[in-house]
Design a protein around this nucleic acid. Structure first.
Lengths: 254, 254
DNA sequence: CTCTCCATTTCTGTATACATACTGACCACA
DNA sequence: TGTGGTCAGTATGTATACAGAAATGGAGAG
């Protein structure tokens, strides 16, 4: 089931991918500060591959949104304001809302809906527990990602799927972006219950071909992530659960 | 919205940009058919630059959505179904709707709204004419693009602006994508009048901070492009006005 | 002491050579 | 005659050399 490329991440993967992963990890872990210029030579030293694949990796990371091209050439690490992140989440929610509406309006056969309902049921089992362990949270993150991916696919719209993938590429904008941070919050279980209610409603809406309802609930669903973000920012001690928060720069005082 | 690098295609631009423009033109003009593999060597022959910038250009065109990566390596020209295009337009409309809502809800100062009103007034002058020449249509396209660009900027959301730019990169998804095709239609003037009404309403909604209204009208506005597309497809004789239609492949379910 | 200009140095953009993986055809053998 | 394997041609992935542009630092003049 695992592709050859996935089996041996260290050796048989292209140098470009290796460089991309190494640089992404470094950026997300805060190894480079926002606004800092990252030279190709420096990246060569970090990754150990030559300039050509490094260049490729830098271009891909720009496309991903983690880097910004400097007009005179080269790249710098992108910084994000809190509002940038909130907007990215709202954006992702809007796109997922569109996907849900497409699915509902165009109709989804019972068999195609099955995988979504399965993910829903598995999530139910996790949420039903009173106290949730960190491992269970981790499982939740995986399942939640699957639910969102399956839902996106149900739109059956290649352009939309593509755009949602791009919008979710930024770690703090992805559907599972702040779930782990949430695990440290006292309200965590309530939030999970609400999120799961959203999941249930969107499935129901799609099944009954209620496009507007499906769209609205997915938008609202994304806003839970905003709430998580705000809570996480107010208890930065658990910052290690959400390394990407290093990319957030202080609100610009202009 | 055009990057500085694209502004001067003939002189002193980087080889990468030159290759990108040449290849894009070739694809859009139908010089390469959908699904056709485009090898780097072939692209070198076409563009006259060496492999490195050609490779760069291919990656950028993939990002743009005109090319598709082949798993075993290399790129092929992407094909689009009619529904892909309709979805891309709906997608763009949804994003522009979000931009309009952001502008309305967050408020726009009178001075910041001025450029939008200016574009609106200039469009009015064009639309007021009874019969519209081809030159006037061309001017309309430019002005319309400016109106949409300014409106997008009013969202003041970098992530959203970025995503709208990417969604509008495909020529048939851009706000001005089918306006030229429309010039060959008997209903052309009516459509222009309706489009301009949309423009007027969205400005009014933003001014009065009516977010939902602004969003809804921008969505509906995009659907005019869908109507234009359908009309254009039904009179393919004027296909030279809309070269990108060469990318549309026949419906798969025929 | 500060500002400006020039030289040095480093960086990116480009070209090209080399290695490896893939594709396709042709031949041999069952 | 069909199938499978091998070999050649070709494509992409990678490394590196070179040129031009940009940034940086110092020195000199005001």
């Amino acid at each position: 089931m695992t592709s050859p490329a996935e089996r041996d991440p260290e050796r048989s993967v292209s140098q470009t991918v290796r460089a991309q992963l190494a640089l992404r990890d470094l950026i997300l872990s805060g190894g480079l500060r926002s606004g800092e210029r990252i030279s190709e030579l420096q990246a060569v030293d970090i990754t150990g591959v030559s300039r050509t694949p490094v260049r490729m990796a830098l271009v891909r990371l720009e496309e991903e949104g983690l880097l910004e091209a400097i007009p005179s050439g080269g790249f710098m690490v992108k910084g994000f304001s809190e509002r940038d992140i909130v907007d990215s989440i709202e954006l992702r929610g809007t796109l997922e809302g569109l996907a849900a509406r497409f699915a509902a309006e165009r109709g989804v056969s019972a068999r195609d809906l099955e995988p979504l309902k399965e993910a829903l049921a598995e999530l139910d089992q996790l949420v039903r527990q009173d106290a949730i362990s960190v491992e269970a949270f981790s499982a939740y993150v995986t399942l939640n990602a699957r639910f969102h991916a399956v839902l996106t696919e149900l739109s059956r719209s290649a352009p939309l799927i593509r755009q949602i993938d791009r919008a979710s590429a930024l770690p703090f904008a992805s559907p599972s972006g702040f779930v782990m941070a949430q695990s440290a919050l006292p309200e965590s279980h309530q939030i999970l219950v609400i999120a799961q209610e959203h999941h249930r409603v969107v499935v129901d809406a799609i099944e009954n071909r209620e496009g507007s309802r499906a769209e609205a609930v997915m938008r609202e669903h994304a806003r839970l992530a905003v709430r998580n973000l705000r809570l996480a920012l107010r208890m930065r001690t658990k910052l290690d659960l959400m390394p990407a928060l290093a990319l957030i720069r202080a609100p610009s005082a202009d």
